[in-house]
């Protein structure tokens, strides 16, 4: 994740970007960027995307014991003591 520093709105003067807009604050006559201001909703999306794509670690490494146990039970049919007959009857219209 990106490191985020917070400052009070009363302590700074910043432009107010609209959703979907980035305000680039330039220096040296526009030859370089000093900062970019995003709308909070866009920054939230940016952080979420970073979280999804930054590591590329195989998801299996994140599986919990409960996930593994549930999968093993279902893959062997041991997750249910008895078939849900009421539900099955509904499927068959009976």
């Amino acid at each position: 994740m990106i490191r985020t520093r917070s400052v009070a709105a009363n302590d700074v003067r910043v432009p107010e970007p609209e959703p979907g807009e980035a305000v680039r604050i330039e220096k040296y006559g526009g030859k370089a960027s000093k900062a970019v201001v995003l709308h909070p909703s866009d920054f939230a999306l940016f952080e979420r995307l970073l979280e999804i794509f930054e590591d590329g670690v195989p998801y299996e490494l994140e599986l919990t014991e409960t996930a593994l146990e549930a999968h093993a039970l279902a893959e062997s049919g041991r997750d249910e003591a008895e078939i849900d007959y009421e539900s099955l009857a509904r499927a068959l219209g009976e």
Partner: peptide
């Protein structure tokens, strides 16, 4: 697949 919770 939908797994039943009762076995967990």
């Amino acid at each position: 697949r939908i797994v039943r919770l009762e076995g967990l």
